[in-house]
Design a protein around this nucleic acid. Structure first.
Lengths: 124, 124
DNA sequence: CGGAATCCAGATGGATACTG
DNA sequence: CAGTATCCATCTGGATTCCG
């Protein structure tokens, strides 16, 4: 039978690590979660939903996701312009895992905050 | 019935976003994956396993994980010193989700690389 | 051995102004 | 509206050195 090359994110020069760096990222998790929940979304709506993100960072995040094949960009020839984004099938395979991270953060923040307080009291 | 406060990572000032920023991170994903697979591990072994990580970054990552209650640090009074790390029960709840991200990167890197090439040809 | 401290180059990210 | 371009402050992370 044919042999798949062995990729490991643990190897410093393995290309898979560059992909991990993109998906294991705060904004990526939020963008993929929101796009996965809502389907097609305009740039501006995405920006509003991801409270606090700057236009520059959202643009860069979306462009990187598009480059990796996780998001599709739809430009409409209208004035004013309308640009919409949606997950590709590949991107959608990340929706559940990344949404899980967002949900984890929300569900466990009370424990995390308590741990931080204990840690900060013990130390400086 | 009692009411849980609503936490949302989508809200810029919600503390859960600080927790998401910590867990949705390349090195966190790798550290938690490796610790979850191997149990108790020495600092040096972890450093060797996470090929390419600098001592400084590994120290900081582990300290932040410890502060958030995801990792425990065990210091042994020996010469030379031995320091071991392991996931807490809370940290272990992240093992499967974060390992899934590492595995995703390895399993889909071929598609991702192909997409990057197409993108780079179309654009500059 | 497992750090802490220091130094420093480069990446990141915000604010602002401008454009099709 | 959805960017792009520019400027600039901050953060990140590597390399090196030193210590218990």
């Amino acid at each position: 039978m044919s042999q798949m090359p062995d990729f490991s994110v643990l190897a410093a020069t393995c290309p898979s690590r560059t992909s991990l760096a993109r998906i294991a990222n705060k904004w990526t998790a939020m963008v993929v979660s929101v796009l996965g929940n809502n389907g097609l979304m305009r740039f501006g709506d995405l920006r509003t939903r991801l409270d606090g993100i700057s236009g520059k960072v959202l643009t860069e995040t979306l462009r990187d996701l598009e480059r990796d094949g996780l998001v599709t960009r739809h430009v409409h020839a209208e004035i004013p312009p309308r640009v919409e984004y949606e997950l590709t099938p590949l991107g959608f395979t990340l929706h559940a895992p990344l949404l899980a991270l967002c949900t984890w953060a929300e569900e466990h923040i009370t424990e995390v905050l308590a741990s931080r307080e204990r840690y900060d009291v013990r130390n400086g």
